[in-house]
Simulated scan of single mutants.
Amino acid sequence: MSKLPADRTLDPIGSQSDLSTLRSQRRRAGLKLVCFRVEGEHYAVSIERVKRITDLSGAYGLLSTGNSLMDSNGENITLINLHALVHGSAQPRLQASQNSAHNAAPQPYVIVCYTANRQLMGIAVEQMPAIHAVPEAALQPLPDLYRQSLSSDCVKALVRLPSALAGQPDLLYLNLDRLG
């Protein structure tokens, strides 16, 4: 098997194309975001950083920060208290609910994400997340006054959803590397 030069790659049907062409196509296609809600706030993360979405079950090792651990497919994952990290208040996180005739609340989910150094972290969410493709222009800078009131720099930008998704709230785009 012959190797391709560093600036060349194979497209799905086997012909060579420039990486710059592929990058350009990706820019036009935009970003794919996993969108979710935690304690009334709407957030988004890049789908490229999501490993899986699973049920929230078996959390243990609760810390005073609200962070805890869970076992998912044999991997220990730190569940972060997103609300506390973004807003600085350690409100209680979601707890797995028991589905029964008396309690019909759906069981929460966990978005398992990678940090930059490939560690896994989990974000407990209230509903099954949605996936939206948005143009890169949908990412807007945070207003200075809002950014200054955040407890950390874990929010990277504001996502203004396109008109095709009218009625959906703006999203806070998370910087996963600042959450871990």
Score class of each variant (00 low, 15 high):
171 L>F: 00
72 S>M: 01
112 V>C: 04
113 C>E: 07
20 S>N: 12
55 D>V: 11
35 C>R: 03
32 K>N: 09
87 H>Y: 15
122 G>M: 05
98 Q>D: 04
40 G>K: 13
173 Y>E: 06
71 D>R: 09
114 Y>I: 10
160 R>Q: 11
22 L>G: 09
79 L>Q: 03
92 P>A: 08
146 Y>L: 15
73 N>I: 09
167 G>R: 01
13 I>G: 05
175 N>A: 08
76 N>P: 05
16 Q>T: 12
158 L>G: 05
25 Q>H: 10
75 E>W: 00
87 H>K: 08
109 Y>F: 12
37 R>A: 15
11 D>T: 00
10 L>A: 06
143 P>I: 15
58 G>M: 09
40 G>Y: 14
21 T>C: 09
79 L>N: 02
37 R>H: 10
100 S>A: 00
35 C>M: 05
148 Q>N: 15
37 R>D: 15
93 R>W: 07
65 T>W: 08
161 L>P: 03
118 R>M: 13
95 Q>T: 14
24 S>T: 14
139 L>M: 15
85 L>M: 13
99 N>D: 04
160 R>T: 05
32 K>E: 10
32 K>I: 08
124 A>Q: 00
78 T>N: 02
15 S>P: 03
47 I>F: 13
149 S>T: 14
12 P>C: 02
81 N>M: 00
121 M>A: 11
